[in-house]
């Protein structure tokens, strides 16, 4: 979606403030753990998590701290999933009968083993990759209202295939929770001048990871 989360190339956010901390309060630590635990138990997948944050109203997104966004997203997805009700959130206690999470409760002994595998997204390919290293491609001009990982700044531009990474779970499908629809994933390199115009720095290239459905011939 063309949301506030898609920040690449926006101006006026100012200088980078060198805040090295991961957390600023104990509740942020707790949010981090809570959300990792229910994600491991199957409450959502990574793309549903991201799309939940993307759907926060822009003014809420911009004025909430990073982990407040996580918390607001969790309330949203847990309500949508039927795991927690608005009445329970208001009361601060369980009211209804629990609907089982897809993977059950993550117990303490499983915590370290199961939440810290940061990824196995490769899947068997159903057809050979369409593009090869060195090919010139043009990113498609897509404006899905749902979840996509093709940033706005990289749409409709000509780039070069830098690497064929493999066949991976396709975020635009995985966000439904029903279909991984694996697709070939590439690294695509763009000259900064092709993205940002003739005044851009000629020494800069920007590389994105792009799924095959995001790409067409140049």
């Amino acid at each position: 979606m063309n949301g506030i989360h898609d920040m690449g190339g926006m101006d006026a956010f100012g200088k980078v403030v060198p805040d090295q901390r991961a957390f600023h309060a104990e509740w942020e630590r707790r949010v981090f753990s809570l959300l990792n635990a229910v994600e491991a138990a199957g409450a959502w997948n990574i793309d549903q998590f991201r799309f939940g944050i993307e759907r926060l109203p822009p003014e809420v997104y911009l004025t909430s701290s990073y982990f407040k966004r996580w918390h607001l997203m969790a309330e949203l997805l847990l309500r949508e999933g039927g795991y927690v009700s608005a009445a329970e959130l208001a009361a601060g206690h369980a009211i209804g009968t629990p609907k089982p999470l897809p993977c059950g409760t993550m117990q303490a002994y499983q915590a370290v083993a199961e939440t810290f595998i940061s990824g196995a997204f490769g899947r068997p390919a159903r057809h050979p990759a369409v593009f090869k290293v060195g090919d010139t491609v043009r990113t498609r001009n897509i404006h899905s209202a749902s979840h996509t990982r093709l940033p706005r700044y990289a749409r409709g531009h000509t780039g070069r295939i830098d690497n064929v990474i493999g066949c991976h779970v396709f975020p635009d499908a995985n966000v439904t929770g029903a279909d991984e629809n694996p697709q070939w994933l590439y690294a695509v390199a763009f000259n900064a001048r092709d993205l940002w115009g003739d005044d851009a720095d000629s020494t800069v290239k920007v590389v994105i990871n792009a799924f095959e459905p995001y790409l067409g011939p140049a």
């Binding site: 630590r29 707790r30 981090f32 753990s33 809570l34 990792n36 635990a37 229910v38 138990a41 409450a43 918390h71 969790a74 309330e75 847990l78 795991y83 927690v84 329970e88 959130l89 009361a91 601060g92 206690h93 369980a94 629990p98 999470l101 409760t105 993550m106 117990q107 303490a108 499983q110 915590a111 370290v112 939440t115």
Partner: peptide, 21 residues
Amino acid sequence: ALETILTEKGYVDPAALDLIV
């Protein structure tokens, strides 16, 4: 509030939360 609800419903084990962070 969210932690209380998730714990009461059996969705999370508080001991696991400490281990994760």
